[in-house]
Design a protein around this nucleic acid. Structure first.
Length: 439
DNA sequence: TCTGGGGTCCTAGGACCC
DNA sequence: TCTGGGGTCCTAGGACCC
């Protein structure tokens, strides 16, 4: 690719300075950090799903990447270490990574479990060093304290910083001042642009574009004409014009919570599928309660074997996070969606319209006593479940579901398995009565 | 060997109102 | 009976991300 001089769309080197940090092969690295014996070995996580969630660089070198089935992993490398995902541990390491960043910069946007953004603009003077040096220090601290490696990109916009961070992996530090933006863009194929997926990429290719650089050379009006709002924003960002700022909000505010579960083999058994759905509902509600959120809108959907999905939306007459209160309406609607002769492969629920639980207006027609009782009951259930493991207490209707957990994550994190070894205690604690009351 | 699970945002189009 | 124009709100669904 020819480098065209004189096409600079940005003159200043640092109108802003954004940092993007991306942990390398995060889940796998965490496992290696927690268990040093795994260092240097091909490690893969995702045992609970049957496909690779994360692969260590040793595994990647063998051609093992994200998303490939585990049977294939075993074929490629019989000695590969295959582990279930341990989100609790990863979250802890993630939190520590972010707090290390905060030692250097006040505002850190936690973008995902293993990625963050930060605005370094104006930090050179107080820290008395270059942007490059700030990045280097953060990187060094994280790597020595947490035993994982990270890749960092620093550039005038978030979009560019993200591209920069991905340019040299693992353990890279790439700094792209304004005058080097074009250099960077020429190395980036369209589909690597943050915000451009398969659809947009294919579309742009029709116009002969190949790299991010090609895209940024297009006229502004052309972009307005052919793409939507996001497209134009990305175009500006890539040319060094800041559009996206750092959001300082914590990631705690969910707008929706969803739970899906695929079951193999597919099934057309009514009660089994309904049971799956209720179990998903219970999981979603547990999460909502943990975050003190309530919902008044539930979407349920069934996915057929042929991957077609059908969903329905349920307006709840009370804003709640109690699965006991929601279940009756779910059952009613389920009848409308479920068809007897169809094989289903998964079910899902989405609690949406989430709001904080403090100021909910009671509907005039709500049976208050019932609601309060339900909520008290729910609280008790949460206490028991947090003590003995999720879904220890659950509704009778979800009994159809096979509750043996496939991954051993729960077993690993919950002491109860050991304590109650050999005893089928679920049968003792399980109380079928209250599911009848719930209806 | 067909793709697991959890999110957000944008947009077009319908319903409804003036 | 048929005609305008404009606004808001909601929903479904697409696209994208990790």
């Amino acid at each position: 690719m020819e480098y065209k001089k004189g096409n600079n769309f940005l003159i200043k080197s640092w109108p802003h300075a954004f940092l993007h940090i991306d942990a390398d092969a995060f889940f796998a690295s965490c496992e290696q950090s927690l268990n040093p014996k795994l260092k240097g070995l091909p490690v893969v996580t995702g045992a609970e799903r049957g496909i690779v969630s994360a692969a260590s660089y040793e595994a990647k070198d063998l051609g093992i990447g994200r998303g490939i089935p585990l049977w294939e992993v075993k074929k490629i490398c019989p000695n590969a270490i295959i582990l279930p995902s341990d989100y609790e541990s990863y979250s802890l390491i993630s939190t520590r990574m972010f707090s290390i960043m905060r030692r250097f910069v006040p505002i850190v946007e936690e973008y995902s479990i293993d990625e963050a953004f930060s605005d370094l603009t104006g930090m050179r003077r107080p820290l008395n060093c270059s942007y490059h040096e700030i990045g280097r220090r953060i990187k060094e601290q994280i790597e020595t304290e947490l035993g994982i490696t990270v890749s960092i990109g620093i550039a005038p916009t978030k979009s560019l910083a993200k591209l920069a961070a991905n340019l040299q992996k693992p353990s890279g530090l790439t700094v792209v001042p304004g005058r080097l933006i074009e250099n960077l863009l020429q190395k980036i194929p369209l589909n690597k642009i943050w915000g451009f997926g398969e659809s947009t990429t294919n579309y742009l290719k029709k116009f002969g574009l190949k790299t991010a650089y090609d895209f940024t050379l297009k006229d502004k009006n052309w972009v307005k004409q052919h793409l939507n709002k996001t497209g134009l924003e990305i175009w500006k960002e890539l040319r060094g014009e800041m559009i996206y700022e750092i959001s300082n909000e914590t990631h705690e505010k969910y707008k929706s919570i969803s739970k899906t579960k695929t079951f193999t083999p597919p099934s057309n058994k009514r009660d089994y599928i309904l049971g799956q759905l209720i179990r998903n509902l219970e999981s979603a509600c547990i999460k909502a309660r943990r975050h003190n959120l309530v919902s008044n809108k539930l979407i349920i959907y069934l996915r057929q074997q042929n991957f077609q999905s059908f969903g329905v939306e349920i307006k709840l007459d009370k804003t709640t996070n109690s699965s006991l209160l929601i279940t009756p309406s779910l059952k009613k609607v389920f009848k409308k969606v479920w068809q007897p002769n169809i094989m289903y492969r998964s079910t899902g629920v989405i609690l949406s319209n989430l709001k904080a639980n403090n100021k909910i207006q009671e509907s005039l027609f709500t049976d208050k006593i019932k609601v309060i009782k339900m909520e008290q009951l729910t609280n008790v259930i949460d206490i028991i479940n947090s003590k003995f493991g999720k879904h220890t207490l659950h509704q009778a209707a979800s009994l159809q579901v096979n509750f043996t957990s496939r991954g051993n994550r729960e077993a690993k994190s919950n002491k109860w398995t050991e304590l109650l070894k050999g005893e089928n205690y679920r049968q003792h604690i399980y109380l079928p009565r209250w599911s009848i009351k719930a209806n």
